[in-house]
Amino acid sequence: MIEVFKTIDKFDNIVTTLLEEEGFWVRHKFKVSVSLEEKKLIGKQSAPKPEIDMLAFNLGRNEVLALDVKAYLDSPGAKLSLLQEEHEVPTGRFKLFTSERYRSLVLARLLQDLIALGMANLETKVRLGMIAGKVNQGQSEAIRAHMQQHDWMFWSPEDVKAKVAARNNQVKS
């Protein structure tokens, strides 16, 4: 089990490096301060504070990516069918992707939190995204198409591998 956690940490470190090399500043495990009243609005008053796996800031574009970053080593991987679900009350593994009300509230609150911390401004665009270390049964392109329909960012396992390979080729040169 400890090896799984080391591998997950390694995946997060690889993703962080790749994002930084693309001009992002990265912050891990950001808890969004959703109030009790807001939790009631989404139908989850006893839910813990939402936690974003990784925030990636691109100052030049004035954009923040709120990323779900998962190695998915101990699972079949990201599944298109789960990402396509729609829930009024946030449910399941991909709550931010499948519940419009929850997503709107959490991303708006995230921007407010970042503004309060001096890390964003009113013009900062917050965009949802996913970086997956494993995708179920070759669904990468179908997931990419689904994400693009919503203007969400997506890196498939193949994207990550290609970016690592390109980086390694640059280092060797």
Score class of each variant (00 low, 15 high):
residue 122 L to N: 13
residue 52 I to V: 08
residue 124 T to C: 03
residue 74 D to L: 06
residue 54 M to T: 04
residue 113 D to G: 09
residue 43 G to V: 04
residue 56 A to V: 01
residue 40 K to W: 02
residue 66 A to Q: 08
residue 109 R to T: 11
residue 82 L to T: 14
residue 106 V to L: 05
residue 90 P to Y: 09
residue 112 Q to N: 06
residue 141 E to R: 08
residue 139 Q to H: 10
residue 109 R to E: 01
residue 100 E to Y: 09
residue 76 P to R: 14
residue 101 R to P: 11
residue 119 M to V: 00
residue 44 K to E: 10
residue 97 F to L: 13
residue 48 P to L: 08
residue 62 N to A: 00
residue 140 S to G: 15
residue 40 K to Q: 08
residue 122 L to S: 10
residue 43 G to H: 01
residue 105 L to T: 02
residue 140 S to D: 15
residue 47 A to K: 03
residue 98 T to S: 14
residue 76 P to A: 12
residue 48 P to Y: 06
residue 141 E to Q: 13
residue 126 V to F: 00
residue 75 S to A: 13
residue 141 E to F: 10
residue 108 A to L: 07
residue 107 L to F: 07
residue 62 N to D: 11
residue 79 K to D: 05
residue 78 A to C: 14
residue 39 K to H: 12
residue 36 L to P: 13
residue 116 A to T: 12
residue 30 F to S: 01
residue 38 E to S: 00
residue 78 A to G: 09
residue 93 R to H: 14
residue 69 V to H: 08
residue 83 L to P: 15
residue 70 K to G: 08
residue 113 D to K: 04
residue 129 G to L: 05
residue 86 E to R: 12
residue 73 L to K: 11
residue 134 K to T: 11
residue 124 T to M: 08
residue 126 V to P: 10
residue 103 R to T: 00
residue 39 K to S: 14
residue 142 A to R: 15
residue 132 A to N: 10
residue 129 G to K: 03
residue 61 R to E: 15
residue 107 L to K: 02
residue 110 L to Y: 00
residue 37 E to G: 13
residue 117 L to W: 01
residue 88 E to G: 14
residue 94 F to T: 05
residue 123 E to S: 08
residue 80 L to T: 12
residue 74 D to S: 13
residue 103 R to S: 14
residue 115 I to G: 02
residue 119 M to K: 12
residue 36 L to D: 15
residue 97 F to G: 06
residue 141 E to W: 06
residue 65 L to P: 10
residue 43 G to M: 05
residue 131 I to E: 03
residue 35 S to N: 12
residue 68 D to K: 06
residue 79 K to P: 05
residue 97 F to E: 12
residue 77 G to I: 10
residue 127 R to Q: 11
residue 32 V to Y: 05
residue 48 P to E: 13
residue 139 Q to D: 05
residue 66 A to F: 07
residue 109 R to Q: 01
residue 88 E to S: 13
residue 30 F to D: 02
residue 45 Q to E: 11
residue 134 K to L: 06
residue 56 A to L: 04
residue 100 E to H: 12
residue 57 F to G: 03
residue 86 E to H: 14
residue 32 V to P: 02
residue 128 L to G: 06
residue 134 K to D: 07
residue 134 K to E: 07
residue 47 A to R: 08
residue 51 E to D: 04
residue 138 G to H: 08
residue 88 E to N: 09
residue 57 F to K: 07
residue 64 V to K: 00
residue 129 G to D: 03
residue 78 A to M: 10
residue 102 Y to L: 01
residue 143 I to Q: 04
residue 108 A to G: 10
residue 58 N to R: 11
residue 130 M to T: 01
residue 36 L to F: 14
residue 120 A to F: 03
residue 34 V to R: 02
